[in-house]
């Protein structure tokens, strides 16, 4: 961390040179460091005409002059102007990058039709998470409170009552099949759905969940 707070960064942009000065850094040190930095790249700077912007610590006019001097002296650069730029870090638009253990990717898992597959025998109980880069087959039940997260398809040869996430890398092509499909929550790719709050009549037939037009559909097999 100490290095970060005492480190000056140079950035070349279309408008000229941008110098990022850590706010709590001592001014003398700033000038000294910039001098050294410029000297190290003397060849690059010599004779070049530059507009300089700096961010972070705000300097007084005298200090700006001093900075200009030191840069010119150390490299022979021609500085056209030197200005402070108020810079606010861009607000990063947040996206759901990950909902359940496998990060969303641009290139999805390719083995939906044919590829790696994990078989799990026995009941998946509450608090257990099955996480796999590929397809998952559960031979048994998945109870409420359990989580099955797979980048591929999920097949449950039993009752699926827990949370399931197929195509967890963002792939909407993945499917979920269970002999009894009544998950607490069903996710395919970036879509999340849940059962209606009013329980429907209990059916015990195998069903398959797929995504069509951005909506998860559940149909009997």
């Amino acid at each position: 961390m100490k290095d970060e707070t005492n480190k000056i960064t140079f950035k070349g942009t279309a408008e000229g040179l941008v110098i990022i000065i850590p706010e709590q850094m001592d001014t003398d040190l700033v000038i000294k460091q910039i001098g050294n930095k410029v000297k190290a790249a003397e060849k690059f700077f010599r004779g070049a005409k530059l507009k300089v912007l700096y961010r972070g610590k705000e300097l007084t006019e005298q200090e700006e002059e001093k900075l200009k001097d030191v840069m010119v002296k150390n490299s022979g650069v021609i500085i056209e102007s030197i200005n402070y730029e108020l810079y606010e870090p861009p607000i990063v638009e947040e996206k759901h990058t990950q909902a359940s253990g496998i990060p969303f990717r641009h290139i999805f898992f390719k083995g939906l039709d044919e590829g790696p597959c994990k078989f799990v025998r026995g009941t998946i109980r509450s608090g257990t998470r099955v996480l796999y880069e590929g397809n998952v087959v559960i031979i048994g039940d998945a109870n409420p409170g359990s989580e099955i997260v797979a980048s591929g398809n999920v097949i449950v040869m039993g009752a699926l009552r827990g949370m399931v996430h197929a195509g967890a890398d963002g792939n909407r092509q993945a499917i979920v099949v269970a002999l009894k499909l009544s998950p607490t929550q069903l996710r395919i790719g970036d879509i999340i759905t849940r059962c209606p709050d009013i329980p429907e009549e209990i059916q015990s037939r195998p069903e398959m969940a797929t995504v069509k037009d951005g909506v998860i559909y559940v149909e009997p097999l």
Binding site: Q98, A99, G127, P144, G145, M163, T184, Q185, I192, R194
Partner: peptide, 28 residues
């Protein structure tokens, strides 16, 4: 590890992120 409050409140099926995700900075 032994959560129940969501079940008692009838909100279990709405959980996407949880307390650990918040403290680990996975979500706000």
């Amino acid at each position: 590890g032994l959560r129940n409050l969501d079940v008692v409140m009838g909100l279990e099926n709405r959980i996407v992120y949880d307390l650990v995700d918040v403290v680990e900075g996975v979500c706000r």
